[in-house]
Design a protein around this nucleic acid. Structure first.
Length: 761
DNA sequence: CTATGTAAACAAC
DNA sequence: GTTGTTTACATAG
């Protein structure tokens, strides 16, 4: 996305790895759960089907299987190289032929290049330079589990979890693994530099969680590390500080990290910061932490340690692995190229770089920006009645590109295209909670935690008085963090003020008032709150630009999108479900000490600099995507056919438009949504347990719908859904539905297509 | 105008 | 000295 030096990439939608993903970031716990989720049995069927279907006119390499759960739906695995248009044409024809009776809906997924090795599906364009690296990477990866083709981070998981589990303690254990693993891999590629030195981390303090996590990381890393990517060192990661912080935090089980650990994590994973960057980068990290509302500071019970967490509603659970995608040697064209630009050419780098300075651009790319375009995201598209509209171009495009192109083009050409509003998913609900750790002593419930549960409330909270209301919540929550309120909710306003809009618009009437979260908090917390508040007060007053509220879109940040992969998230879902505890936990694992959250960063009006305060409103905002028109496109709200969302909505008002600011074509407000959705979908499984019971408990309305997502996303019916984010998509799934048919509500799509389609792996 | 990055002033520990 | 917050400014899109 952003090329400018200053702007690092932003991850937009993240693609999920097809293969089983375990939730990358999620906690270990899920593991158990998640695994079950996948329908294995179906595979066989699928495979058979595949054989059948594949036959058609479709180009070789394409596999078609019936969607395990969706009627009249087939999944088409397309090699990256494939000519999408032709495929679409064929599918379209097929769909027509079939009519209502036959498969009329197709989900296109990139199977990675036909040729590509398993491990890296996409050949994309690695930078020319990189070719070597690519190779290297492959090698590297090879050893690792991940190697499997999909970018996915973890293979089915396994190891990590174990470890995690091992770490009883907690946070560290869980999620980290996954993410870390992947991350690690990535790292390895990048450079040995950072990694090599595991020792560093050891140092890490005692922070409870941190330690564990890190350690693990270290461990893993080493293995990976070795490889090449010399460049990596010199190169500045294509990620923004915000993204890196998220990666770091999400790499931990608890989804929280101390500042120091964040520094360490970044240094370890991005050698550039360790070796080349100016010392001021740490200042920038701090600045980002303070600036963005999504980052919430929690204080350990004892008050000694401050942990930075990501506001659940805002957390996409991005992890480095998710972002990173090995480049395939093969296709130069890959979208990535496009992205490559993003990297920043920093002048700084140059200056600083003593070491490596000049890497060819290509080289830089190594780190892939998040956006892999094609592969993973699911983009349901409904063909307009006249299909013609769809891809005009005859040109072949690498899948990834194609996907992106398609979307864009479609959008353009076909007026009809709609972008599905983001579905909302409540993150929270979805969100992977940090592991369900045993609660630590207290659980401070974070507002966050609550949020998910109570999105609506949150909004109201303001109204409500602080202390008193806890009602809904089962447990008291502490929220230091910015209260939900702050979080942007999906508001109507389209984009306009992206940031602001959230807040303002629909959500809370008063946009700004940041209130204290008090309401949420339990008495106990109050104390903490108080503390927090103090600051807030200050802040509020002062705030200027200050915190940027979560933008719904979150946009930049790396967002995860899960399409099929949803499986990945499952874990999280599972967790949720499992977690005995209610929501709160979800969001935040508390520490023993019951962290206090920092007061919300409120949003105050501010001055120039956006401060966190500004935006926020509900977290939910993230979730929903309101329909809107964008650039001519309509975004109608996608409705979820089912109730998947059911819950969600109401309060959230899916309908609301969110303004997602996606400038371009927003599909979903935030990838998160997608993510969320996915999980749900995925969730269909057992785990899914849709909204964890607990959640609901608190709020009757349980707006938070956790579940829904896919369906929502799918809103096939709606029309085309394009992912604006093109870039980001690593995979794009296209659902093509033929007019006559209704859409499918889609069940949970969470399927690992890889199971059915080997290539995907 | 927005998002991001960078630098720096300050405050609280 | 570290951690956090906030300003201010610069830059790219």
């Amino acid at each position: 996305m952003r090329t400018s030096p200053r702007r690092p990439l932003i991850l937009k939608r993240r693609r999920l790895p097809l293969p089983v993903q375990n939730a990358p970031s999620e906690t270990s716990e899920e593991e158990a759960k998640r695994s079950p989720a996948q329908p294995e049995p179906t595979q066989a069927q699928a495979s058979q089907e595949v054989a059948e279907s594949s036959s058609c006119k479709f180009p070789a390499g394409i596999k078609i299987i019936n969607h395990p759960t969706m009627p009249n739906t087939q999944v088409v695995a397309i090699p990256n190289n494939a000519d999408i248009q032709s495929i679409i044409t064929a599918l379209t024809a097929k769909g027509k032929e079939s009519g209502s009776s036959g498969p009329n809906k197709f989900i296109l997924i990139s199977s990675g290049g036909p040729s590509s090795h398993p491990s890296h599906p996409q050949p994309q364009a690695q930078a020319s330079n990189d070719s070597k690296r690519t190779e290297v990477m492959a090698e590297t990866l090879g050893p690792k589990p991940a190697a499997k083709g999909v970018p996915v981070p973890k293979p089915p998981g396994a190891l990590p979890r174990q470890r995690q589990e091992g770490c009883a303690g907690g946070e560290a254990a869980g999620c980290m693994l996954d993410s870390s693993l992947t991350n690690i891999q990535w790292l390895g590629k990048m450079s040995s530099d950072g990694l090599g030195p595991c020792s560093i981390k050891q140092e890490l303090e005692e922070k409870e969680n941190c330690h564990l996590e890190q350690n693990r990381v270290k461990i893993e890393e080493p293995s990976v590390a070795s490889t090449s990517w010399p460049d990596s060192v010199s190169e500045r990661p294509p990620y923004s500080y915000m993204a890196m912080i998220q990666f770091a935090i999400n790499s931990t089980e608890r989804k929280r990290m101390t500042l120091k650990d964040i520094y360490t994590w970044i240094e370890d994973h991005f050698p550039y910061f360790k070796h080349i960057a100016k010392p001021g980068w740490k200042n920038s990290i701090r600045h980002n932490l303070s600036l963005h509302d999504m980052f919430v500071r929690e204080t350990s019970a004892n008050g000694k340690v401050s942990f930075w967490t990501i506001h659940p509603s805002a957390n996409r659970y991005l992890t480095l692995d998710q972002v990173f995608k090995p480049l395939d040697p093969g296709s130069p064209q890959s979208p990535e190229h496009l992205e490559s630009q993003q990297k920043r050419p920093n002048p700084e780098l140059r200056r600083n770089v003593t070491i490596k300075t000049e890497l060819p651009l290509g080289a830089r790319r190594k780190m892939k920006p998040l956006l892999p375009r094609v592969s993973s995201y699911l983009v349901p598209i409904q063909f307009p009645v006249n299909q013609s509209l769809v891809l005009q171009p005859s040109v072949k495009v690498p899948l990834p590109l194609a996907a992106s192109l398609m979307s864009s083009e479609l959008a353009r050409h076909s007026k009809r295209v709609r972008i599905a509003p983001k579905v909302l998913l409540s993150n929270e609900g979805i969100a992977p909670l940090p592991a369900t750790e045993p609660l630590k002593e207290e659980k401070p419930l974070l507002g966050e935690g609550l949020l998910p549960l109570l999105p609506i409330q949150s909004i109201k909270e303001e109204e409500i008085q602080p202390g008193e209301d806890m009602p809904h919540l089962e447990r008291p929550i502490k929220v230091e963090s910015p209260p939900l309120e702050e979080w942007p909710s999906p508001c109507a306003s389209l984009k306009e003020g992206l940031s602001n809009s959230w807040e303002d618009s629909s959500c809370s009437p008063t946009p700004k008032p940041k209130k204290s979260y008090c309401g949420l908090k339990s008495p106990t917390r109050r104390v903490s709150e108080m503390l927090v508040t103090k600051r807030r007060e200050k802040r509020e007053v002062s705030r200027s630009r200050r915190k940027q509220h979560l933008q719904p879109p979150c946009v930049d940040e790396p967002e995860l999108f899960f399409s099929e992969d949803s499986s990945t998230f499952r874990p999280a879902m599972a967790l949720l479900a499992e977690s005995s505890e209610p929501a709160p936990q979800l969001s935040c694992p508390q520490e023993e000490g019951g962290p206090f959250k920092t007061p919300i960063k409120e949003t105050l009006p501010v001055s120039s600099t956006p401060s966190k305060s500004v935006l926020s409103r509900d977290p939910e905002s993230w979730r929903l995507t309101p329909p809107a028109k964008v650039g001519g496109l309509d975004f109608s709200p996608v409705r979820t056919p089912q109730g998947a969302f059911g819950p969600l909505p109401d309060s959230l008002g899916l309908m609301e438009l969110n303004t997602t600011p996606l400038k371009s074509l927003p599909l979903f407000d935030s990838p998160r949504e997608l993510l969320n959705s996915e999980p749900f979908d995925l969730a269909s499984d057992p785990f899914r347990s849709s909204p964890p019971p607990h959640l609901e408990g608190p709020k009757p309305g349980s707006p938070e719908p956790q579940a829904p997502s896919l369906s929502a996303n799918r809103s096939l019916t709606e029309g085309l859904v394009l992912d604006t984010m093109n870039d980001s998509l690593s995979k794009i799934l296209l659902d093509i539905s033929f007019p006559g048919l209704e859409e499918d509500p889609l069940g949970p799509d969470n399927i690992n297509w890889s199971q059915f389609i080997p290539e995907l792996r």
